[in-house]
């Protein structure tokens, strides 16, 4: 299955400074009853953005224009908590294309990569400098694994296979399916 390849993301940023933003904040569990994909933008950070009666709160997220601002600067340990892939789906549907954070939750990171959402974990000092420049344009480059904005520059690492998948728009399933014989041999060896 092919996805849109991602090589660079150039966009303005918005920041959520809190640390340990868990996946229940990104998408509350009551929105997990979906059986399809592509409709979770309204549920993204729902309880940060809306009152219980559905009226909007005075929260910066309600002023983000995701036509121009697709890069989220998030605090440390972003996406901790549950394994729900609905978290990257909701961020994607909301309009986020890259998350820059000092560190992201392990399962969230894997889920994001499987959905074309770039997660760049960068040095906390550089991250703080980018947060200072919130709203400015940032370039996230998968070719040289760099994040640049004005005179702030940081590098990040990305699991090499996930990087290739992102850059070529491949999904990982095709790769494992091509190894079926090896898997069958492993199964035969163990029984």
């Amino acid at each position: 299955m092919q996805r849109e390849p991602v090589r660079q993301i150039v966009s303005r940023s918005f920041a959520l400074r809190e640390h340990n933003i868990d996946t229940d904040q990104i998408i509350p569990a009551r929105f997990l009853t979906v059986t399809e994909r592509g409709s979770l933008g309204d549920a993204c950070f729902r309880d940060w953005r809306f009152h219980a009666d559905g009226s909007p709160k005075d929260h910066p997220l309600n002023r983000v224009d995701t036509q121009t601002h697709t890069i989220l600067l998030a605090g440390d340990n972003f996406g901790c908590g549950s394994s729900r892939e609905h978290a990257p789906w909701a961020l994607w549907d909301f309009g986020v294309r890259a998350v820059i954070t000092p560190r992201a939750g392990d399962i969230f990171k894997a889920n994001a990569a499987n959905n074309g959402l770039v997660v760049a974990e960068i040095d906390p000092a550089a991250h703080a400098a980018l947060v200072e420049r919130e709203d400015e344009e940032i370039r996230v480059d998968l070719e040289d694994l760099s994040v640049t904005s004005g005179n702030v520059r940081a590098s990040f690492s990305l699991e090499p296979f996930a990087r290739v998948c992102l850059m070529e728009g491949n999904d990982a399933l095709g790769y494992i399916l091509a190894r079926q014989e090896e898997i069958a041999r492993f199964e035969a060896r163990r029984t």
Partner: peptide, 20 residues
């Protein structure tokens, strides 16, 4: 360990996961 839905699909299809 816990996995996301894409990986649930990988395991259903191949009984395997890509892991570091």
């Amino acid at each position: 360990f816990g996995i996301g839905t894409t990986e649930v699909g990988h395991v259903l299809a191949t009984q395997c996961l890509l892991q570091r």
